[in-house]
Amino acid sequence: MPDSAGELDKATARQSGNWATGTGRVARHSVGLALFVSELSVLYRRRRTWAMLAALAAVPILIAVAVRVTNSTRQSGRGPQFLDQITQNGLFVAVTALVVSIPLFLPLTVGVVAGDTIAGEASHGTLRYLLVAPAGRVRLLIVKYVGAAAFCVCATLVVVVTGVGIGLALFPVGPVTLLSGDTIGFSESIVRLLLITAFVTVSLLGLSAIGLFISTLTDVPVGAMAATIVLSVVSQVLGALPQLDWLHPWLFSHYWLSFADLLRQPIAWESFGANALLQLGYIAVFGALAYGRFLTRDVLS
C-alpha cells in the first residue's frame, strides 16, 4: 500500500479515470475479489465476530438444554412457537431458535457488522488507504455490502446448524409435523430447513443495506451500529401496531416470521417472493443513498 500523500492522490486519480472511461475492467475485477477476500478475513479475524456467532450458537443450545433438563410436557400455546414440538423432534430446536433469534439477536449481530462496514474503517483511519487501492469507492461499497451479506448467511447458518446438531444429540428425530398437520421425512425436512435458512438470510439483507448507508454517514461505528439496531426494533414495533396496518407491507421486518410459510404443505411460496422483492427494494433504495453519500463525501480519515 502506498503510504505517502502524493501517491495516494495519484492512485485516487487513476481509479477515477478508470471509472470514467471504463477501462481496466479485468484488473479491477480481480482487485474487487482480492478486496472481498481481505474483507472477509478481516471480519472473521475479529474476536467480536466470533463472540457474536458464539452468542447466536448459544440460543439453540440453551433452548435444547432447558427443554431436555426440565423434560416437562409443555402446555401448548406457551412460550415461543414450536417449543412443545422439540421433545418429539430434535429438528424443531433449529426452528424454535430462529423464532427466538429473529426479533433481536440476528438483527443485533447484523446491525453490528453492517454498521461497522464504512464507519469502522473511518474510525481506524484505514478508509483512505482502502480508497488508494485502484478499486474505487463503488467497488469498496459493494465489497463491504457483500461482506455484510456473507455474515447474514453465516449467522443464520450458525443458528440452524447448531440447532440441528444439538437437537440430534439430545432428542429423537422422526417425521416432522408441518403446520398443515402433514408429516415429512428427515431428508425433506433438512431441505425445508435450508430453505428457511435462505429465507431468513434474505430477510436480513434489507437491514444490512440500511446499516451500510448509516455507516457512510458517520465516523463513529458504535453510532451506526446502534442506529441500525434501533431501526430494526422500531420497524418491529411499528409492525405490531394494528393502527398502522397500511404501513406494514413496507416494513423490512414484515416477513421476518413468515419463514413459517415454508413449513406448510404445499409450501406457500408467495411470502418468499414478496420478501425477496421487499428486501431488494430496500437494497436498491439504501444502496443508492449509500452510493450518493459515499461518493460525494470527503474522506479525511
Binding site: Q81, F82, D84, Q85, V99, L179, S180, A260
Partner: peptide, 26 residues
Amino acid sequence: QVLDDLAERDLIRNGNDVWLYDSSEN
C-alpha cells in the same frame, strides 16, 4: 388452510370424512 402467523388451521374433507386440524393446539 387458514394461514395464521406461525400457525395454521386446516379443514380437510375427503368424501364423508372431515378433518379439522389446529397447529397451535396440535
